[in-house]
Simulated assay, not measured.
Amino acid sequence: MGRRRISSRSGPWIQIRYSLECGTSWARMWGADVDDRVEIRASGRDDSLHVAQVTSRDEADTYVHTSMSVVSPGMSVKACFFPTAGGGKECFETRTDKAVYAP
């Protein structure tokens, strides 16, 4: 539900999070390398796209978050991982009601 190990090669985790209270969704990434990035796109009225990139070793050792997108229950949300080491982007999609709930 909303969390996936994206790349067996490098091992980062990508999680799509959802707050019913705020009506928002975002992605967070951990276990990544410097310059890896994650994008989240929420379908809907503004088809929002937000990006987060690991810019330092300190960030690589913790969570990196995208900005929040305004969403509604059941909306489709897609996260894509772009590894700096190559290999192409890897994506997964879920609905906000299937994402990891964050109170």
Rank of each mutant, 00 (worst) to 15 (best):
A85P: 00
D46F: 09
P73D: 14
F82A: 03
G23V: 00
G11R: 12
A27G: 05
D35V: 03
I6H: 02
T24N: 14
S7D: 15
S19Q: 05
A60L: 08
V54M: 08
S19M: 07
G23S: 02
P83T: 11
R95F: 05
D33F: 03
R37T: 07
T62F: 08
M68D: 13
V71M: 10
S76H: 11
E21W: 04
R37W: 03
S76G: 14
H65Y: 15
G74T: 05
A102W: 09
L49V: 15
I40K: 03
S48W: 01
A102H: 09
R28W: 02
A42G: 15
A52V: 09
K89G: 12
T94S: 13
D33S: 15
S7C: 07
I6Y: 06
R41L: 04
F82W: 11
A42Q: 08
G11I: 10
G88W: 01
W26I: 03
Y63A: 14
R17I: 03
E59V: 05
T84Q: 13
T66R: 05
T96F: 06
V70Y: 05
M29H: 00
S10T: 10
R5S: 06
V70Q: 00
A32L: 07
T24C: 09
M29R: 00
P103Q: 06
M75V: 11
G74N: 14
F81N: 09
R28L: 11
E21S: 14
F82D: 09
F81M: 05
R28F: 00
V71I: 11
R3M: 10
R4L: 14
T55N: 14
T24L: 09
I14P: 06
I6F: 02
E93P: 02
P73C: 10
V54T: 12
K78I: 10
A60N: 09
K78Y: 04
K89S: 15
Y63N: 15
G11K: 14
S8N: 12
S7W: 02
K98S: 13
S67H: 04
M68R: 06
I14R: 05
S69K: 01
I16Y: 01
K98M: 12
D36A: 04
E90Q: 15
D47E: 14
K98F: 11
S56E: 08
